[in-house]
Amino acid sequence: MKDHLALCFLHFANSVSLKNNNSRVSYERDTKIINAASFTIEREDHTIGNIVRMQLHRDGNVLFAGYKLPHPLQYKIIVRVHTTSQSSPMQAYNQAINDLDKELDHLKAAFEAEVARVSGEY
């Protein structure tokens, strides 16, 4: 079971870092509003959508961040970001992903340490 949980973290961390490295993410700028864009992430759902959204919300330059699952039969999400002129959607998105990646790496390390501590105790 312990291994299992660790596995969960590992996999989780992996899945986040996978996000932006290949063509699973496409970027589309909004034609009407400057500094607004939507990212279409293929083969992802609320798991990623929601944490990315929450992470973007923590960015002061992000005016709007939201995501949607366009249709229950389509396995993709669309993340829409609108930032101030100090930043850009791409930048905010990358920042959010990197921060999350690091956070989860940290989480994984922290968890493994904790597991080691607890199993040592027993």
Partner: peptide, 16 residues
């Protein structure tokens, strides 16, 4: 740009 990374803490309460 400011990093918004957090450093979550984990504490195991029970492990079976």
């Amino acid at each position: 740009a400011a990093s918004y990374q957090r450093f979550p803490k984990v504490k195991i309460r029970e492990l079976k």
